[in-house]
């Protein structure tokens, strides 16, 4: 088979691409070894914190990021809509390392979701948007193509069952975490151990699992002590 994945960077270099990839926090290195590749589409499921952590390093280094129709917390995800306006916790975003002066938020794009995301992809380095429940395939393809041609990263946040994003280059799924530091009436929330599953197309086709403290102590992200990237295919091979 022709190794397309290997051929790609050469082509990009020949075309004089802006910069290869946007950096991610060192703790997320196991998750995204090469950073956020410009022009790619990544879907994130399960955790707003994970989404914010992905933006953090790039934002701190000067990239412009934008949130569209975010955040939507797990309360809404379980179905209790119209509970009250959910907003970004600016403090949490700051603690991850995001520069808030370069993080505009579009709380509700409504009917013009496609136009708004399209306009933002033209100018921003990272556009993180919640995928609406219903999105025409043609619109979806157009946005993915736009992200690729403008060399920006489209992070689509999928809230539970609603919304889909079949064309993602990479899929990150956060599993419910375990909180530590809190007991039965004592302590406080300190940090959360979270398992994140990664799979994707092409180069990233092999699924992996990474364990992180997200958030770790003082709101930042830390690798888990026994941080291991488990190649699921290896596990399967070992089992069989």
């Amino acid at each position: 088979m022709l190794d397309l994945a290997a051929a790609k960077p050469v082509a990009a270099a020949a075309l004089g691409a802006r910069s290869p990839a946007l950096p991610v926090l060192p703790a997320l290195g196991g998750l995204l070894p090469g950073g956020l590749r410009r022009g790619s589409t990544i879907s994130v499921t399960g955790s707003v914190s994970l989404l914010l952590a992905l933006l953090a390093e790039a934002s701190a280094e000067g990239a412009w990021c934008v949130l569209v129709d975010l955040p939507v917390g797990s309360a809404t995800r379980v179905g209790a809509a119209q509970m009250g306006a959910e907003r970004l916790g600016a403090e949490a975003a700051r603690d991850f390392g995001i520069d808030l002066s370069r993080l505009p938020v579009v709380p509700t794009a409504g009917e013009s979701w496609t136009n708004v995301v399209g306009a933002l992809l033209d100018a921003f380095d990272i556009v993180a948007a919640r995928a609406p429940a219903r999105l025409a395939d043609a619109d979806l393809r157009r946005l993915v193509a736009r992200a690729r041609s403008r060399e920006s990263v489209l992070l689509s946040f999928l809230s539970g069952g609603a919304g889909r994003w079949p064309m993602a280059d990479l899929r990150l799924v956060a599993e419910p975490g375990e909180w530590s530091g809190i007991g039965d009436g004592h302590g406080r929330l300190a940090r959360r151990r979270m398992r994140i599953r990664v799979d994707g197309r092409g180069q990233a086709a092999r699924s992996r699992e990474v364990t992180l403290w997200l958030p770790g102590s003082r709101g930042a992200v830390e690798p888990h002590e026994i941080a291991r990237v488990v190649e699921l295919s290896d596990v399967r091979r070992a089992v069989s």
């Binding site: 000067g62 990239a63 412009w64 934008v66 970004l88 600016a90 403090e91 975003a93 700051r94 808030l100 002066s101 370069r102 993080l103 505009p104 938020v105 579009v106 709380p107 509700t108 794009a109 409504g110 013009s112 136009n115 708004v116 306009a119 933002l120 033209d122 100018a123 921003f124 380095d125």
Partner: peptide, 27 residues
């Protein structure tokens, strides 16, 4: 240039959605 471009895109979204369409968070 990146900031200039981003700000222009924000202005464009604001004309689509109104001033409250794009918010700036702060702690």
């Amino acid at each position: 240039e990146a900031g200039e471009r981003a700000r222009r895109a924000i202005a464009r979204v604001q004309t689509m959605l109104g001033a409250g369409g794009v918010m700036q968070p702060a702690v």
